[in-house]
């Protein structure tokens, strides 16, 4: 299950901010469902704190309180270190001072499975893209009533 260049599918990231300096594991069950269904595979996780003075600290999971560690540790996946310090710095720029965030990277495993199935059926996946929500909303609004 190591990260394999030949088989890895599309990769997405999510930055989930929380006001104040509090990490909790409340998003973990929803993530566990997505992981358990085979939709996604977690490949990196790091936590970021932006202090009131604007300085940024990144924390690995084991630096968090035990109950938070436990909540995330239930997830199947790995922390690869794929995100660099530079990446974390870029994303932290969007955080408000005095807030914290979980930064997740996952492989859209379902898309990789689909691509494999297509290939094995003799087909060819010519295009696949995740559309921005704004684009979808515009298209929905333009549908005739």
């Amino acid at each position: 299950m190591a990260l394999d260049a030949a088989s890895i599918g599309p990769v997405e990231y999510a930055l989930v901010a929380f006001p104040g300096n509090r990490f909790n594991g409340e998003i973990a069950p929803a993530l566990a469902q997505a992981v358990g269904s085979g939709a996604i595979r977690i490949i990196d996780l790091v936590f970021v704190v932006k202090n009131a003075d604007g300085s940024v600290e990144s924390l690995e999971i084991d630096a968090l309180p035990a109950e938070t560690v436990a909540a995330f540790d239930h997830l199947d996946g790995e922390i690869s270190g794929l995100l660099s310090e530079q990446d974390i710095g870029l994303l932290a720029a969007d955080l408000e001072p005095g807030s914290s965030a979980a930064l997740l990277v996952w492989e859209a495993a379902w898309a990789a499975h689909l691509a494999t199935a297509v290939r094995e059926s003799g087909g060819e996946l010519l295009a696949r893209e995740t559309l921005p929500r704004e684009t979808v909303l515009q298209a929905l609004a333009a549908l005739p009533a």
């Binding site: 990231y13 996780l45 999971i61 995330f72 540790d73 997830l75 790995e78 690869s80 660099s84 310090e85």
Partner: peptide
Amino acid sequence: MLRRPMVARAGRPGLLG
């Protein structure tokens, strides 16, 4: 269980770059 085969995050362009 989240495995942790982590490499150092410093000194690489990383993912988002």
